[in-house]
Design a protein around this nucleic acid. Structure first.
Length: 187
DNA sequence: CGTAAGATGAAG
DNA sequence: TTCATCTTACGG
């Protein structure tokens, strides 16, 4: 449950739930785009599916920074995904933002995504990165600058289930989404 | 060194 | 179901 001030970023599993309903806002030269966070996944250094598993390296370094650090990674040669780092500095934790409900700048998002269907704009981790115009230059920065969190809504009900696209720790219930929301990703 | 697989998405 | 096509991890 989000508070009125800031989401709880003390732990990735807690934060994954706490972040649901918060508005993720990106201020860009072309305009402001934003959306409510409706789907998340929690990752931790003790989790074999996590990029932070096995210790700190160049690629996962942002995950070991303080809570609120932005972690953007490149995957499959084509896509980018964005995480919000959680936990104390030195602990490799983060929450993957998997889906948003578009709020501001829908036209700009359509333009960036090259699609006209609002329901296909931000219903996947790489889709929302493209729609918001998030670049790797944000990697390692803190939320609160051009990319920030603002209060949104309090989810009525949250569904907890297994994560998507991983091959390790597949049984862990570390994916959360706003029950019934139409912008949740469909694998 | 070579090679395979990866927190995905779009097209065929 | 396949492919796009980059980076890292790991084996020889």
């Amino acid at each position: 449950m989000p508070s009125n001030n800031l989401p709880d970023l003390s732990d990735s599993v807690v934060a994954a739930q706490s972040l649901l309903g918060w508005k993720l806002v990106h201020e860009t030269p072309e305009g402001i785009v934003s959306g409510y966070i409706v789907e998340t996944e929690a990752y931790d250094m003790s989790d074999p599916a996590s990029h932070s598993f096995g210790g700190e390296r160049a690629r996962n370094a942002p995950m070991y920074q303080e809570a609120g650090t932005i972690y953007v990674y490149f995957i499959y040669g084509v896509h980018y995904c964005v995480n919000i780092v959680t936990g104390p500095k030195g602990h490799g934790q983060a929450v993957l933002i998997r889906a948003l409900e578009p709020v501001d700048g829908v036209e700009l998002m359509k333009q960036r995504r090259g699609v006209d269907n609002t329901s296909q704009l931000t219903n996947g981790p790489a889709k929302l990165v493209q729609a918001l115009g998030i670049a790797t230059s944000l990697n390692g920065q803190q939320v609160g600058g051009v990319l920030r969190l603002e209060p949104g809504f309090t989810p009525q009900e949250i569904t907890q289930t297994t994560r998507i696209g991983i091959s390790k720790a597949v049984h862990e219930l570390w994916r959360y989404y706003v029950t019934g929301n139409q912008y949740v990703s469909k694998p």
